[in-house]
Write a protein that binds this DNA or RNA. Structure first.
Lengths: 340, 340
DNA sequence: TTGTAGGCGTTATCAA
DNA sequence: TTGATAACGCCTACAA
């Protein structure tokens, strides 16, 4: 358990000074080949490793970025992080992850902690609702780039990466209409999170475009889990005029609905069409396979990382806001394929 | 984009010295109430944040830990990381994640990078095979704790967290036998990864215990994906005497097998029983729901974190090796429920 | 080409 | 109770 070697150890060994060692290690041109070679040899001999902490303190750049998500063990977020890490690792950045547990206070604390740790930027998908927007603003008035992805809040000078939730909702709904569905219900979630509102608006506008009436009783707000989906489907099917299709803003919700409908021997897609959102892995394995809207989460992560890198590079200039909207892809599977 | 405040800024503001400010901020008893209050007020006024980097350099403790996995967007690893972060965050640690992409060279480099970044410990699930054991040893001879989880290599003084893969394999196989299956096949993976070998051995011993013959042609080595599972099942069913059950070391493998069997109108579980390993979320949603062996990945992460914390605390004493073996849980679902 | 010296932000030791 | 100073490991003017 011996102490780690420093440039001073190398210097002492060679009877030169630490500055020279530093230069040799950093390929500084102003140094003789002999010394460079000698230093390099001694470095490996002593098993020297550069202390990134010292460098970070000196340079003011930690080469760490913070990524903040509600939970990491959710396929969507894990995939975004995959994209971020894939993109940032080759540039020498380390990715620090933190989970908010959907807790506002925890989120705030996490952001402060990351700032204290001198991360070079923070990429986050918020648990905050708009009501907390003002409170969060203070934290964001820092000298590092913040980038929101997926669950975003709009602030001046803060970049965002989202998917086109509106179009995703619109396309999914229009697809159901084109399959001949006439009474399309919608599962939504907390409207404080803007992306759910956007999907909802896409749904409404698709109905309008095709002359279908919007009915309040066909819209249900539920948590994103299977049990809630079952309950919601049950409620819908008890209506005097039940729907003949559901567009759900979450795959978990539609999963519950499918299970409920199957338990009532309602045939999908013949009698009832469904489509979810997120294209979770399980949707393709079910029988029937469930149509869904793909969000390409890995791409989202890469894009967030790229925007971050851009902002880092232009640090001389003004921090420029950039709002990237990624396209969605409608994945049509059996659950909504009524027509041949 | 103003510069961050330091304790010197506070000191200057109050016409005292930085040392005093430091003491006030750290609740050092040797300080007057007045000064403490004044410092605290000025700190918030100037929006002072402690620079963890400087502290880390000074103390030699970065309060960061590295977590190394093949890919983060795989449910199992994401869940382990969830457990790790949940456990470590309250203790003030940040979790840095890196992905090896199953690439040995990349893994080695990642470990070096993390050490350079002065992490206080590294928790990893390796991509190395035993053939690379010696090469990796050098990296591990450092002054920080290393902890292997799930995919482990055994070294002296390095702790490991695994599940009881042997018993998981044994229980799964025995369960199939008790359901009346007589010709049980096995899907395995790369035998260089010890956990697959252990599951395999559990399978063999269960057969032996119940007097069933072990047949080499019933064992197939495949990659963990659906397509490979389909192929493997096809191969098995073309045998002169095809099996009547499969115990697979991966859920993805068994998923492919189920799809193939269903395409051939073979009834599960009536005519054929299957059981997987890992209890991936999708297994419970399929029709039929697939039996599997649960590995409680979140628990594994928590345990890995706890072992790390123990080793950090005892840093005065010898680093003591600890091999934790977590229990598996057999999850019986329809796919292997032949008996009523 | 190499050495000297200062500083990044903290804390700890010793003096006052 | 407070101040002065050194140290953590590295880099970079500036000087030699």
């Amino acid at each position: 358990m011996k102490k780690k070697a420093t440039i001073y150890d190398i210097a002492k060994e060679l009877k030169i000074t630490a500055a020279t060692v530093s230069r040799a290690l950093n390929n500084n041109p102003k140094i003789s080949e002999k010394t460079r070679k000698l230093v390099l040899e001694t470095a490996t001999k002593l098993n020297y490793k550069q202390n990134r902490l010292a460098l970070a303190l000196k340079s003011g750049k930690s080469k760490n970025v913070g990524v903040v998500v509600p939970f990491i063990n959710k396929n969507f977020f894990a995939s975004v992080i995959r994209g971020i890490e894939d993109e940032l690792y080759p540039k020498g950045f380390h990715v620090i992850i933190s989970q908010t547990h959907e807790d506002k206070d925890r989120e705030k604390k996490i952001i402060q902690n990351l700032i204290n740790a001198q991360v070079d930027g923070i990429l986050l998908s918020t648990s905050f609702t708009n009501s907390n927007k003002e409170e969060l603003r203070k934290e964001l008035k820092k000298s590092i780039p913040f980038i929101f992805f997926d669950r975003v809040l709009k602030y001046e000078n803060i970049s965002t990466i989202t998917i086109n939730d509106y179009k995703g909702g619109f396309d999914a709904t229009e697809h159901l209409i084109k399959q001949g569905c006439k009474r399309i219900a919608h599962f939504s979630v907390n409207q404080d999170i803007i992306l759910y509102k956007n999907r909802f608006n896409g749904y409404k506008d698709a109905l309008k475009k095709h002359g279908l009436p919007f009915k309040n009783e066909y819209v249900i707000y539920l948590k994103s889990d299977m049990e809630a989906g079952k309950e919601a489907a049950k409620k819908l099917m008890k209506l005097p005029v039940p729907p003949d299709a559901i567009f759900s803003s979450t795959d978990n919700g539609i999963l519950g609905a499918v299970k409920y409908l199957q338990s009532k021997s309602i045939k999908i897609p013949e009698d009832f069409c469904v489509i979810g959102f997120s294209n979770e892995p399980f949707t393709q394995f079910l029988e029937p396979a469930i149509s869904s809207v793909d969000q390409s989460p890995v791409e989202m992560g890469k894009m967030a990382a790229q925007v971050f890198l851009e902002q880092i590079e232009n640090d001389q200039t003004i921090m420029v806001q950039k709002d990237v909207i990624l396209p969605t892809t409608l994945i049509v599977r059996k659950s909504s394929s009524k027509l041949k």
